[in-house]
Write a protein that binds this DNA or RNA. Structure first.
Length: 125
DNA sequence: CTTCTCACA
DNA sequence: TGTGAGTA
């Protein structure tokens, strides 16, 4: 299939599909014309990519994870031995992001609270 | 009519 | 991230 059908079947727009390719997440064949040719497997791959992206993984790690994962009744199961350790690291990275965001929120809260004392009429959140 | 790349604001 | 130009 070419780009148009791929867009229809994945619900992911053209721009993004090319971006995934740029990031090494997809490697469709090329026609002599330069047109991309995707296989049925790629449709499934895009679904996985979206799941992993939603899980907060970077495209960089997704590129490493994809070839090391197997689909087993609606679930991604790690195949490679080192993958689990890698995912733990990624989990730590995400945890640090959460910590940073919580710190930011706490910082804003102090500012908001200070302002609330000045002008009690202003509601929070 | 579809897809490609590249560039711009 | 979207849009448009100019091709093949």
């Amino acid at each position: 299939m070419r780009m148009g059908e791929m867009v229809r079947r994945t619900g992911v727009n053209e721009r993004l599909l090319r971006y995934y390719e740029e990031q090494g997440l997809l490697t469709p064949e090329r026609l002599p014309s330069g047109y991309r040719v995707y296989c049925d497997k790629d449709v499934e791959t895009v679904r996985r990519i979206r799941v992993l992206l939603t899980a907060g993984l970077t495209t960089d790690t997704i590129a490493r994870v994809l070839p090391c994962v197997r689909e087993e009744d609606e679930r991604l199961v790690p195949v490679c031995s080192d993958l689990i350790a890698q995912l733990r690291q990624e989990r730590e990275r995400i945890t640090r992001s959460i910590d940073d965001l919580e710190a930011s929120r706490a910082m804003l809260d102090t500012v908001i609270d200070a302002g609330a004392e000045q002008a009690p009429a202003v509601s929070r959140r």
